[in-house]
Amino acid sequence: MKNWVRNNKMFVAFLVLFGVLRTAVADWNPIPSASMHPNLLEGDVVLVNRMAFDLKVPLTDMVLARLGEPERGDIVTFRSPRDGTLLIKRVVALPGDVVEMRNERLYINGKGADYKLVEESMDTVAGTALRAVQLAEILDPAHSQALDRRLRHIQLIPGVVAPNTFPPVTVPQGQYLMLGDNRDNSADSRVIGMVPRKLLVGRAERVLVSADYQGNWMPRTERFGMSLYNP
């Protein structure tokens, strides 16, 4: 074994550096489901900044220092508090926020979001093609020029049974409420509960590459390098 390491030390060094990069600095994650339609598609591979919130010991989850805090509107990867599965959702409510949903309309601290129709399309749920409605969701109209965080596109699928109403709940300190942009087809905080900060992995920044793996595997070059915070 020692001889193998000695003879392949450049390869071993590459593996170590690769592991450090992916576990402490930046990572890339494929999108496996439709929960973030219309902004993320199956077959997208997103760049995740693992230093957005914490500096961790490479190859571990041990936090050395806090580097930043999640903001409303951030798309983040995290471990599910239910079973540890790696998920990607959007931060909708911060610690101390009072959040509720009334018939699909989101309210943060008593202020309801505004919605504007973007387009209608078709989406597939459980193998069935259904009409989908894409909306611009504006949480803070007074500051709507900050498009990267306060305005985003979400998707509703009329007729699908989903938890689209829940009473006011206060987000506990050190936790976050996450929702998928595909509101009627997402197992998010309405299912798995609030997400503790210690389970956050990083902030997704942009699409690196994309391919239609459910169809003909053709690359979607128009999505290469696309920012996740443009409406």
Rank of each mutant, 00 (worst) to 15 (best):
F14V: 13
L17T: 10
R190K: 03
G127A: 04
T170A: 02
S186Y: 08
H143T: 08
V99L: 14
F11C: 09
L177D: 00
A132K: 04
G73S: 11
N185F: 11
D181P: 03
T124G: 00
V125S: 01
M194E: 00
T170D: 06
T85W: 03
H37S: 04
G202T: 09
D61T: 09
G202P: 09
Y115W: 01
D27P: 01
L117E: 11
G19C: 11
R90W: 10
I31M: 05
G174E: 04
H153A: 03
M1V: 15
M226S: 10
V91C: 09
P167N: 13
A162D: 13
L199V: 00
G96M: 02
S33E: 03
K56M: 10
H153C: 09
T23G: 05
V92L: 07
R190T: 05
N216A: 15
E100H: 04
M122L: 05
T77S: 15
L228E: 08
N182R: 02
M10W: 14
V25F: 05
K111W: 03
F14C: 13
G202C: 12
V25T: 12
Q173R: 14
P196Q: 04
Y176I: 01
Y176L: 03
G110P: 07
V133Q: 08
V25L: 06
A136I: 11
K56C: 06
L106S: 13
S80I: 02
N103Y: 08
